[in-house]
């Protein structure tokens, strides 16, 4: 892995992970694009494999010990969503991460029972 030379003025000297270096030039993931709110959780398999993973993969699996969205993983690694999507897709393919997709109807909208559950949850706050 190469080290990203860019600095963005932060005290730690820049990104934790260089962008398209770690994706080996890939800008798209192999499968269908994960939506930005898709949730990831580390699998037992992924936790067991932690020590052997490259740093950027390890950071993602560790962060996903609690459910994390693709957007959060991008923020944790300080990489654009597109980069996070490629890396996460690799981990999903290896079954180190489980992915939890939005549940939508045929028209692409969230199911009605989910909207009602959301409403109950927000009103109870």
């Amino acid at each position: 892995m190469t080290v990203d030379e860019k600095t963005d003025g932060r005290s730690d000297g820049g990104r934790v992970v260089p962008n398209y270096a770690v994706t080996r030039g890939r800008t798209r993931s192999a499968g269908p694009d994960l939506p930005i709110e898709a949730l990831m959780t580390a699998t037992a398999h992924g936790r067991a494999a932690l020590a052997g993973l490259a740093p950027e993969y390890r950071a993602i699996v560790e962060a996903s010990s609690t459910p994390r969205s693709l957007a959060e993983i991008g923020a944790v690694l300080d990489v654009p969503v597109g980069v996070a999507r490629v890396l996460v897709s690799d981990l999903v393919e290896s079954e180190y991460l489980a992915v939890h997709l939005p549940l939508v109807d045929a028209d692409g909208r969230p199911r009605r029972e989910l909207l009602e559950r959301l409403l109950d949850g927000l009103r109870a706050r």
């Binding site: 890939r26 800008t27 798209r28 957007a71």
Partner: peptide
């Protein structure tokens, strides 16, 4: 507060265009 970045080129460049 978290911020995420979307790279403008990342949506239109395919795998074959890695170069």
């Amino acid at each position: 507060p978290l911020s995420t970045e979307q790279e403008m080129t990342s949506l239109s460049v395919g795998v074959d265009d890695a170069a």
